[in-house]
Amino acid sequence: MSIAAKANALWEYANPRKFLATSERVLPFFWVASIACIVVGLVWGFFFTPDDYKQGSTVKIIYLHVPTALMAINCWLMMLVTSLVWLVRRHHVSALAARAAAPIGIVMTLIALVTGAIWGQPMWGTWWEWDPRLTSFLILFLFYLGYVALWEAIEDPDTAADLTSVLCLVGSVFALLSRYAVNFWNQGLHQGASVMRAGAITGTDTEEKVSNVFFYPLMICIIGFVLLFIALVLYRTGTEIRARRIKALLARERVGG
């Protein structure tokens, strides 16, 4: 299959019916795989890794904190991409996927914030610190709220899809700007966190073996959360498609079809 043909095949999933059929087929796999990964990752992480020599057992919240924080950002990126696809190609499924993803993003952001606070309490001695990274997530949370509120406020689904898509694009630029602004405003306490430097997170850079002990279960948790996110988005998009169809059928009945 040529690349062009493959690309065309991809757009076929923009047909609501095809999307529903395919997502129903693959969903069970995603549910099982994500739950398996999360259970394995969390059990391994919580019970079969040693306590960190500096942070003690509190470090183990990393298995929830890092994956949810990652998904909070990736969810917004996914909404950005699907919004662009809607604006350019007018595929309804794309707009509905963005709508379906937003509440998931809100929950992920909240979990990341709460676990961050729980972790920060013993580490920094305070529940909340206006640290750049935490602050950025709080701002991201506000952007999510505005986005969802706009979806809810507009009755006509196509108008809502258009307006929220533009808001998502403009919001992304401003979210990025806020990130830099916040960094400038307060150089913070938060560790330079990156999964690729898991050793740095746990403060065990010097002992490669120990950092690997934390790294593998963390990777499994992250994979689990990615799969969970995909499953939730597919599931919720299916619901949105059906809700939209009911709305369309009711409108059709009203005009007397």
Binding site: N15, P16, H92, R244, R245, A248, L249, R252
Partner: peptide, 14 residues
């Protein structure tokens, strides 16, 4: 406008 055939999903969708 006459409604599109009901079994056309995209039509019913619009």
């Amino acid at each position: 406008a006459k409604p599109k055939p009901i079994d056309d999903f995209d039509g019913g969708f619009l």
